[in-house]
Design a protein around this nucleic acid. Structure first.
Lengths: 153, 153
DNA sequence: TCATATAGTATGGATCTCATAAGATATGGA
DNA sequence: TCCATATCTTATGAGATCCATACTATATGA
């Protein structure tokens, strides 16, 4: 059917707009916290995946290991993370996110969270489930695509 | 109802994951095109909003005017944009996105577009409309939130 | 006409990125 | 065990980027 394709394109366009908007929002929040965009991205990945080693985080974030060292130095100095050296492999380091500054971040994202609550209030429970599943599938799709091209290179 | 709140939080979490994934994907695409993340963001904003002046784009992207000059220099040198000086106000410049390199970008985003098509194939037309509306509302919410805090500062 | 405001860009110092190298540790075979 | 090689992280330094400031050109309004 023709409508399906058109709606699909609208979804992709809306997704692009949403990405921009979330990027700008993050940029603004980062500014208040004196964090570069990439610093926030790293913190976000750590929050999602839990403690990682620098090499794994660098690969996952698409950054050069030496670049990540600089980022971790900044994050450590500002009290966002700690570097632990107590693993079976003593070359390795574990990055641990400190809870100390969590409330600051929470406060800065609060306006967007409230705005999202307003959006969500218009939907039924079943519709919310549908949306949640769609978002998870889209994220997983992104992960698959990224994983494939990472393997090739 | 308790379920609503939980599902809402799941949506927010999924949105966070999706944001990360799209950021990483953009970072990867940018790498192939020798573009910084912020360069791609600017191109994306221009694609969304049409031709803009440097000052407007700088404000919209949350960047210092001098920073944007550097970005525009890069984009111009690489053949992404042109700077036009033909407006009523002769101090002003209009940034125009050139179509020349559009196909390159299209090709690089193609894998993600295909992956999204696979995701979308599981939904009915009505469900797709629901999702599209949700995404548009979320983007609009982000815009409102950002607009408010921009006014304050 | 001219004082002031605005758009965009040049300048230069601080900061960031990353290729390379170095140091520390691990691993596997002789 | 000993050692060659690989791996993890970080130091170093050159080049790129960011941005406060200053500057030029143009506009606006008294």
């Amino acid at each position: 059917m023709r409508h399906r394709r058109r709606t699909g394109n609208e979804i992709k366009a809306a997704l692009r707009d949403l990405r921009i908007q979330l990027a700008l929002l993050n940029h603004q929040v980062g500014g208040e916290l004196a964090l570069k965009d990439v610093d926030l991205d790293c913190l976000d990945i750590l929050a999602r995946d839990g403690s990682l080693t620098p090499s794994v985080l660098a690969r996952r974030a698409g950054l050069h290991p030496a670049t990540l060292t600089g980022i971790l130095d900044r994050l450590e100095d500002a009290g966002w993370i700690a570097r632990d050296r107590a693993r079976p492999d003593r070359r390795s380091v574990t990055i641990r996110v400190l809870p100390d500054r969590g409330m600051e971040v929470f406060r800065l994202y609060q306006p967007m969270m409230s705005a999202m609550d307003d959006v969500l209030a218009d939907y039924t429970e079943a519709e919310l489930e549908l949306i949640a599943t769609f978002l998870r599938r889209s994220a997983a799709a992104g992960e698959r695509v990224l994983g494939r091209s990472a393997v090739e290179s």
